[in-house]
Amino acid sequence: MLLIEIKPNTCDFCGCCVGVCPEDAIELQEAQISIIEERCTNCAKCVWVCPFEVLLFNKPQKTKAEA
């Protein structure tokens, strides 16, 4: 399940996240960014390096059964 979220209309398309992504899981065009869900391992490196805090890591919600 993809836990990384991109805040809409905040990205500057600089490529910093792509540079640290070990899975090549980010597609970045001139003014378009998306995460390739099948490749993303939710390692969150992209979230940590983003200069503009565009990427968010959503902690998985535990279901009642797990809790």
């Binding site: 792509v18 640290v20 992504c21 983003c50």
Partner: peptide, 26 residues
């Protein structure tokens, strides 16, 4: 292709920048 460096990755070269070496800039 700059900091993204995907051409290298596609060719099998490890071009991923380690977190500590990535200077993130504004």
């Amino acid at each position: 292709d700059g900091v993204e460096s995907r051409v290298g990755k596609w060719a099998g070269v490890d071009t991923t920048t380690h977190m500590r070496d990535m200077e993130t800039c504004a």
